[in-house]
């Protein structure tokens, strides 16, 4: 059987809110090392990769590798019934066709049990090679969310450029154009408010803003976001999940004709 008990149940709630509108049905791959998920959106332009390590769970047991086929909208509906401070336990039998979610209130005075049917999803996984990216920018996640939202009101594609100065976001549309530059900034009190740029090669790529907007639904997961770019490769937008793993979004670039 598989069982995972997560003291910070809100993390799982936030993960579902971040991916339920991008991916419809996917397998949660459970093994003794934790829970992993890899899925593309319906247009195969974006890819989501989630890792929740077993060590991040208060209790974790997985006797046999299980691929739990789940409709994310339905799982989100059930997780919405959990309180933000609830402990969430996921459970599934090896030969079962359901998954159960148990929510325990902080002082254990309310225990909820939800059971959801599993689906048979034969998903193929893509091999994502380890890459030494030409540019890696870490910045406040709320800042990135704000920039993407603001640019989306002006245009539908963004040119993201990274130089040693910093990272720039540009767009244009019917009403005009916009360009936002965030400089490297390490002289702030809290580390999480820093913007750091690790650059090996200046790089500039073009992306559809509606996907970047969708990725920023994960902002609640981490105060920082890391953007990794390399010429002619998908951008990686990564939200680290403290002590557990990460939620990564890959977005294929738009190639000039």
């Amino acid at each position: 059987m598989f069982e995972g008990r997560l003291l910070q149940g809100s993390l799982l709630k936030k993960v579902l809110e971040a991916i339920k509108d991008l991916v419809t049905d996917t397998n949660f791959d459970c093994s003794e090392t934790g829970i992993a998920l890899q899925a593309m959106d319906s247009s195969h332009v974006a890819l989501v990769s989630l890792l929740l390590k077993d060590t991040g769970f208060d209790h974790f047991r997985c006797d046999r590798n299980l691929a739990l086929g789940i409709n994310l909208q339905n799982m989100s509906k059930m997780l919405k019934c959990a309180g933000n401070d609830d402990i969430i336990t996921l459970k599934a039998e090896d030969e079962g066709d359901t998954i159960t979610f148990m929510f325990e209130s902080p002082n254990q005075d309310k225990i909820s049990d939800f059971e959801m049917k599993l689906m048979d999803i034969d998903s193929e996984h893509l091999g994502i090679p380890d890459t030494d990216y030409q540019a890696i920018v870490t910045m406040p996640s709320a800042e990135f969310q704000r920039i993407v939202r603001d640019l989306s009101s002006i245009g539908d594609t963004a040119v993201i450029g990274v130089t040693k100065e910093g990272i720039s976001f540009s767009t244009g549309g019917d009403i005009g154009k916009a360009n936002i530059v965030c400089r490297q900034n390490t002289n702030v009190d809290k580390e999480e408010d820093q913007t750091t740029v690790e650059i090996h090669e200046p790089v500039s790529l073009t992306f559809a803003l509606r996907y970047l907007n969708s990725f920023t639904k994960a902002t609640a997961l981490s105060p920082q976001v890391t953007l990794s770019l390399s010429k002619e490769l998908p951008i990686v937008v990564e939200y680290k999940i403290e002590k557990m793993g990460f939620l990564r979004f890959y977005l294929a670039p738009k190639i000039e004709e």
């Binding site: 332009v45 073009t206 670039p253 738009k254």
Partner: peptide
């Protein structure tokens, strides 16, 4: 700007 590429251009099925 430009033509949207697909994920399968960059990452191959395992």
């Amino acid at each position: 700007g430009g033509k949207q590429s697909l994920m399968s251009t960059f990452f191959k099925p395992k």
